[in-house]
Design a protein around this nucleic acid. Structure first.
Lengths: 184, 184
DNA sequence: GTAAGCATGTAACTTGTTACATGATTAG
DNA sequence: CTAATCATGTAACAAGTTACATGCTTAC
C-alpha cells in the first residue's frame, strides 16, 4: 500500500513518467523502497483508472514516447487523507536475524562470515546514503534529509552491534548457551 | 521465504504444532515476524509434502486433536544449507518514514503527532523485548538474546532520532526547506 | 453467558518480484 | 559490437493477510 502513496507523493511535487519515478526512488530513497517496473506501472494504471492522476503522452524523436503522469485534485485529497492517518506498525524482520537466531548450528567462523557480510552490506548502504546526502536535491528537501538521517542512525547502531557481537565471538563468549551482553 | 526457515529452525529444536509455533514466534520473536495462521499452516503442509517434516496426530480429551510436526534428516539438511547461504539484503521500509518524507504537507502539530505515535510504538516494543529478555527461555538461548539485543539497539537509536526531530520541530527548525541535523 | 485459549484449516485477495518482450539511441 | 540508458508493458509466480468456518473447555 505504501508504494502507492510514495508514487502519489512524488507526483504531488511534479509530473513524472513511471520510469522517472522508479529511478528517483531507487537512487535517492533506496532505504525505503526499490520497486520494480512490475510494481510501478500497475500502480500508475490503477491511479489513472481511479482518477487520482491524469496521463499525457509525449512523443519524442529518437526515444520511445513517454507517458507523463500528473496528480489531480482528487489524488491530492487521497494523499492528504493517507498522510494524516497513523502509520502501521512494522517489524525489523531481516533474513539476517533469522540466521543469527539459529547460529548455534553454525561454526564460529561461519557466524563470523555472516556478520562480516552484513557489515559490508551496512557500510555500503551508509556510503550510498552519504552520497545521496551531499546531492543538491536532498539538501533542498529537509524532510528527505531527515529520512536519510533516520536510516543512517539505524545503520550506525547496527554497526556497533555487529562490532560487539564479532568481538564476543572472537573471545569465545558465544558457545552453546552462553551469557553475554550486559544490559546496557 | 524466511518464514519457512523460521518454522524449520524452531522444529529443529523440538517437535511442535502449528499453533505452538505461531504462538512462540509472536510472543518471543515479534521483532522478526508475526505470521498469521494462514501463513503457518500452508508452510507446514508444504514441508510435509516435501518430506522436510513428519506429522503425528495426537488425540487429546477435551481439546481438539493436535498435529505434532517433527523435522526429518532431509529437513535438517535443507535448513543447514539455507543457514549457510548469505542473507538477502533488505530495506528499512517503514510506512512511517514515507509519511515523514512528505511532512512538508503537514502542519507541525500533525508531524508531532506522527512522531509521538511512533515513539509510543517503539517504547511499547522495547517494553515487550525487555519482558521477553527476562524470561528463562530467552536467557537460556544466547542467540535469541542476541537478536533481542539487536532489536533493542535499533529501537533505542530510533528513540534518539525521534527526540532530536521532535526538538527541531518544536524549535521551528523544520520549515518548508530547512537545514537541520549536524552530520554527527 | 461470554470471552479467551486451544486447535485446525481454506478462499479470496493484495502486493510484489522475476522474467520476458519490444525497440531505439548513445557511449565505450 | 556491446552495454547502458530510455521507455513501456504483461504473465506467471510467490508470499502473505484477512476473514471466515468449526468446535470444545476453562476462567471470569
Amino acid at each position: 500500500m505504501s508504494h502507492r502513496y510514495l508514487v502519489l507523493g512524488l507526483l504531488s511535487e511534479r509530473p513524472m513518467t513511471g520510469y522517472e519515478i522508479r529511478k528517483r526512488v531507487c537512487e535517492t530513497m533506496s532505504m525505503i523502497a526499490s520497486p520494480s517496473y512490475g510494481a510501478v506501472y500497475p500502480i500508475l494504471h490503477r491511479l489513472l483508472r481511479e482518477g487520482a492522476v491524469t496521463m499525457d503522452v509525449v512523443e519524442q524523436e529518437g526515444r520511445p514516447a513517454k507517458k507523463v503522469y500528473a496528480i489531480t485534485e482528487s489524488g491530492r485529497d487521497d494523499f492528504a487523507t493517507w498522510l494524516r492517518k497513523p502509520a502501521a506498525a512494522d517489524q525489523v524482520r531481516r533474513e539476517f536475524l533469522v540466521k543469527v537466531l539459529f547460529a548455534r548450528d553454525l561454526d564460529p567462523e561461519e557466524l563470523t562470515a555472516h556478520l562480516r557480510d552484513r557489515q559490508a552490506e551496512v557500510e555500503g548502504q551508509i556510503a550510498v546514503l552519504e552520497a545521496v546526502c551531499s546531492e543538491p536535491e536532498a539538501q533542498a528537501n529537509g524532510y528527505h534529509a531527515l529520512v536519510i538521517d533516520y536510516a543512517l542512525a539505524l545503520y550506525r547502531a547496527e554497526l556497533c552491534w555487529l562490532d560487539r557481537v564479532a568481538q564476543a565471538v572472537r573471545a569465545g563468549e558465544l558457545l552453546q548457551d552462553a551469557l553475554l551482553l550486559d544490559p546496557d
